[in-house]
């Protein structure tokens, strides 16, 4: 878990290589370590998160959007929504701040190797899931079929638009995109909630692992769908959002049931949380 020199709140200075606008109030920040080392020394796994620390403002948990296979930069996709992210949005190329991490249990990449993957993302849920998506594409031979389902509320809110468009040129990933509403009639793909995409592709539930990240309402409906299709509960993984203040299982903000989301999650196999009413 990184280099903490004994203090679990130890920070590492980073600087911004590029800040790329995504959609309204969402920006992708590419970061480098100020100590000159590559991100390999950071040792992150897909699905983990960091605490972004800006003096005078505070700390905020942000998921890592880039895979460890690309160690020249660490990418975080940030929604502007509070003191820390406001400050981050005021920064540009060359600006420095601090981070801590990597934290939490990420996606079970070793377990997923050799398996068919169904990745389901809703809205900003694509940000953490992208680390696994790009990881599996970078190590394409390690995985069987890859299916990506991504839903947003409208065509204006599609994240990583150009990257997603580039998948149209590949035949080794099956992608299905949806928007809840398309008032202007510009969307060429499916219009409706993300679960509607299940009727538009063939799945082999017995051999497929489903990994999802999105808003709580999406989880409820996608879970129903997956279980109805015959997915084993053990084959379903979900990344939960919580207010993870300290990231090291101490401050208590992210706890539910007997779990601390920041150290035992944010990625949970469904059987671990299915009986905790508050989890989803």
């Amino acid at each position: 878990m990184g280099d903490h020199c004994g203090n679990i709140y130890q920070l590492r200075p980073v600087s911004i290589i590029r800040a790329l606008p995504q959609i309204k109030d969402h920006r992708l920040f590419q970061l480098k370590l100020e100590d000159g080392t590559t991100w390999e020394s950071f040792g992150h796994q897909p699905g983990q998160f960091i605490e972004v620390s800006i003096f005078g403002k505070g700390e905020a948990p942000i998921s890592i959007s880039s895979p460890p296979t690309r160690s020249d930069t660490l990418e975080i996709c940030v929604r502007r929504t509070g003191r820390v992210t406001d400050a981050l949005f005021e920064m540009g190329k060359g600006s420095t701040f601090h981070i801590r991490g990597p934290y939490g249990r990420g996606f079970p990449v070793d377990l997923l190797k050799g398996k068919k993957l169904l990745l389901i993302a809703g809205g900003l849920g694509l940000a953490p899931l992208r680390s696994l998506l790009l990881y599996s594409l970078d190590k394409r031979k390690d995985f069987d079929d890859i299916i990506l389902m991504y839903g947003t509320n409208n065509p204006d809110n599609v994240l990583f638009k150009y990257e997603l468009l580039s998948f149209f040129d590949r035949d080794d990933i099956n992608y299905l995109y949806s928007v809840d509403r398309d008032d202007e009639g510009i969307w060429k793909q499916y219009v409706g909630v993300v679960t509607g995409l299940f009727d538009r592709t063939d799945l082999s539930p017995a051999e497929t692992y489903a990994v999802m990240c999105g808003p709580p309402v999406m989880y409820r409906f996608v879970l129903q769908k997956l279980l109805k299709l015959g997915f084993a509960k053990e084959h379903i993984f979900m990344s939960l959002e919580r207010m993870m203040k300290c990231g090291v299982g101490k401050c208590g903000h992210c706890a539910f049931g007997d779990k601390y989301c920041c150290i035992e999650g944010p990625v949970f196999p469904y059987p671990e949380i299915e009986n905790i009413k508050e989890a989803i």
Binding site: A60, L124, E241, R242, M243, H253, C254
Partner: peptide, 10 residues
């Protein structure tokens, strides 16, 4: 205590 950045509160 548990309110998230999105405004959602578990």
């Amino acid at each position: 205590f548990t309110r998230e950045a999105s405004g959602h509160n578990p």
